[in-house]
Amino acid sequence: MASARVTLVDYLHLEPEPHLVAQECRHCGARFFDRRNACARCGRSDFAPAGVDGAGELRAFTIVHRAAPGIPVPFVSAIVRTDDGTWVRSNVVNCDPTPEAVKLGMRVQLTTYPVGADDDGTEAVAFGFEPT
């Protein structure tokens, strides 16, 4: 039985290459990742999907050692600004979760990884950013 795949969140698209898709305000250009009622910057309500650059810079991070039950620690929580100016919250992956390895301002690239399957065997795919 071929196992199905879903993305962890709907703004992660896997084809043709993994990338994020933002909702971009047609009026002011503000970008959002959630379902919108209107634009938080200008108040208009006309949006278009916009592909987000996969490369960016690590602008802030924390190394989480205590989290809710069931969440594996430690992990690196990150705020990334992609090269097209979009802000993304994610984890830094494929990198030691230590202050020595994670550096503010380092270059990172979008990547994906599996985060487990549900009881029907459907696999969820998440995104993270890895150092380049």
């Binding site: 969140v9 709907d10 989480v64 809710a68 919250r89 984890n91 029907d120 969820a124």
Partner: peptide
């Protein structure tokens, strides 16, 4: 069961996967 829900269409909790 992975079914998208909420404003981000998330199939499960994202805390710990997409930051903290």
């Amino acid at each position: 069961v992975f079914e998208p829900s909420g404003r981000y269409g998330a199939v499960t909790g994202v805390d710990g996967y997409l930051g903290t």
